[in-house]
Design a protein around this nucleic acid. Structure first.
Lengths: 215, 215
DNA sequence: ATAAAAAATTTCCAATTGGAAACAAGGGTT
DNA sequence: AACCCTTGTTTCCAATTGGAAATTTTTTAT
């Protein structure tokens, strides 16, 4: 009888560690490794493939596929890639929960005050607000902008998408490329293209708090 | 000097094999393992994290992260999962190519407190927060939910897209189809599929105010 | 039923992963 | 310069992965 694989054990420990957080509010965003095997098997069977055929398609050994499907090993990234390519799987689909739930049934995800997933950086203290649903169109953060002198403003950030900024408390200075910096007070909001460099600085005595939604 | 890792060599062969398919077809869904390291590093740096900090967030060793970023190992699935969870990465984002940076035609749109475009309905007092930019991905409202008895709750609303709800002040009762009503207090938030019928009722003495973002 | 064939699992072992610790490469300070 | 501190890379080795082949289980045919 095979011992419990290490990564399963690790997962269990981790699970216990964050159980409180989870029990009440947020579950994990991503498929647990525990579920990877099940997903792969579903997909293979849905294509009426045997392990042998899947093996030929992916270039992986039968035994390897078997072990993956039975959660006996944690496949390496390159193996997962071969799997996805060989079986014509959309990678993201492999990692997100089957979304029949989202599309048809509809789902909702409640996050209590202060119970989002913390996500600190040297500059900002992000708190991810919705952690249960994957493949969301928007990513909402409640962010604490630390009070600091204007000189040491953080570097531009630049990325895909659009962003909505709403000042919950305090006041901030919004730097955006191509524009003059502008001060935003509590209740003010801004909407901008993230392709522009942008950054935030608190201008209040205390830290400022903003809601930041990215699409 | 480290030898070229096995999986890189394999990948190169694969790449050649499917080159024709690729050149013609648009495909390009996935990041080549060759790029995984680069992507991870990009993401880490974009959050201004050091390897040490990322290590704490993910529970992975500094050395492991370093090797991943330098494409010296092919991380196992469980490691990739920890990476994504720790850094708050949306998994799919990790595997899809960043679209070409949008030409920096960026724009921004500031809305001062109370200066949005009013949009009253019998049930809610919406205030459209970003009025200058058209064809946005998100539509943000600051909405006053009138205090009223629970009996006369408004009818379901049901439409396309997803919605983020953040309670700015007061408390509300969120009704959503398929779920029990849930009370949200100041600072709480909810994310849901708008295809579900949904409606809001204030449970505080005074009117409640929420931020409502639709995508 | 029983045998034969097909499919899936397990064993064995070489090759690879991942963590601890040693090592390098800056940055600042005295 | 000598020192300390931080960040990132490399080395070493125990633990794990992944493939070939043996074994078991399931299916099909007789």
């Amino acid at each position: 009888m095979p011992e419990e694989p290490h990564f399963l054990i690790e997962e269990k420990q981790r699970e216990e560690k964050i159980q409180i957080t989870r029990a009440e509010s947020n579950a994990e965003s991503y498929v647990e490794p525990l579920e990877l095997g099940k997903r792969v098997r579903e997909i293979r069977l849905s294509q009426n493939l045997t392990l042998e055929e899947a093996s030929k398609l992916t270039g992986l050994a039968r035994s390897t596929l078997s072990k993956i499907e039975n959660d006996q090993i944690s496949p390496t990234f390159s193996v997962v890639t071969k799997l996805a390519n060989g079986l014509g799987i959309d990678m993201p689909q492999l990692f997100t929960r089957p979304k029949e739930a989202v599309a048809a049934t509809g789902r909702r995800d409640i996050t209590r005050k202060g119970e989002g997933r913390p996500h600190p950086t040297p500059t900002y203290e992000h708190e991810l607000l919705s952690t249960q649903l994957t493949s969301k169109k928007m990513i909402p953060y409640r962010t604490v902008v630390r009070a600091r002198s204007i000189e040491e403003y953080p570097e531009w950030v630049r990325h895909e998408g659009e962003e909505l900024l709403y000042v919950l408390s305090g006041s901030v200075l919004l730097y955006t490329e191509f524009y003059e910096p502008i001060e935003l007070m509590e209740g003010d909001s801004a909407y901008y293209d993230c392709a522009m460099g942008h950054s935030l600085v608190s201008t209040s005595e205390d830290d400022a708090v903003v809601l930041w939604v990215t699409a």
